[in-house]
Design a protein around this nucleic acid. Structure first.
Lengths: 136, 136
DNA sequence: TATATTGTACTAAGGTATTAGTACAATATA
DNA sequence: TATATTGTACTAATACCTTAGTACAATATA
């Protein structure tokens, strides 16, 4: 068994946010991937250790990891651990297009309801991309 | 009292979708605004009439309208009705920027978790804007 | 003022989501 | 094989979400 890199990420929970714990965990992993702190092959904290750290039940961590596994973000193996996946080869271009379409649709409707139009959104995204790329 | 335009929109509900009724109503109003079927000053169906049409409780419609009022999408007055707001003058540029930032952040994280990067997103949005603008 | 029309407050029922308790199962490794 | 380490299944408690029932309140208008 190859020893994968076990990075020390600091997870935190906000009980008052209204966001479920398992979703907060997922979000933090996603953000760590997005900004490069986590990458392919990295090991996440074990279910038990993270549960102890965060003082919550192991099943709650397990649920977060399971959801990410379903989404293809991580791979889990009992007895071994949970690791960031090889980059989602399993999503076809067509499927990705569909997902993107639905994400964009929701997003545009929301933005629109705040009086923000597509030009603004596009400008914003371009600036964002040019100034501080999210992907490592 | 000026008689505002009362357009005939056809609302529908899908009980099997898992999306709450009040959210379905909000979504349909938002989409109607986005594609121009509804615009500033238009009156929405009354709470009661829409409740009868959709065969649900008036409070459910009321909740949808109240949420939209909080978001600044509509203005409600008892005895008079519910109308599409004058274009959100109440949102400052700074506030709008903040909202946009948080919307974009959520969106990018989601897209990223599906392996979709910003360039793809921007391309997609640009095509969308150029081909079939959402705003009338 | 009287009446119709509009939205609202308060409450409760039912369902769903979230989390924890407890015991278990799969894998790695000495 | 024995033991430690990893994740999991099943259940139940609690909280929250959604909707409806009922009665009410504010406004418009005859």
């Amino acid at each position: 068994m190859v020893m994968e890199e076990q990075k020390s990420l600091s997870f935190t929970l906000d009980p008052k946010s209204g966001v479920p714990y398992y979703k907060q965990v997922i979000l933090q992993v996603e953000m760590a991937i997005a900004d490069g702190r986590l990458t392919t092959g990295d090991q996440l904290p074990t279910v038990r250790s993270l549960a102890v750290d965060l003082k919550i039940n192991p099943n709650t961590i397990s649920r977060a990891y399971r959801e990410m596994e379903i989404r293809g973000i991580v791979n889990t193996q009992q007895g071994t651990g949970t690791f960031i996946s090889e980059k989602e080869i399993e999503i076809s271009a067509v499927e990705r297009e569909k997902i993107l379409a639905s994400l964009v649709r929701d997003f545009v409707i929301k933005a629109n309801s705040y009086g923000i139009d597509m030009d603004q959104v596009i400008d914003y995204l371009q600036e964002m991309r040019d100034n501080e790329p999210l992907k490592a």
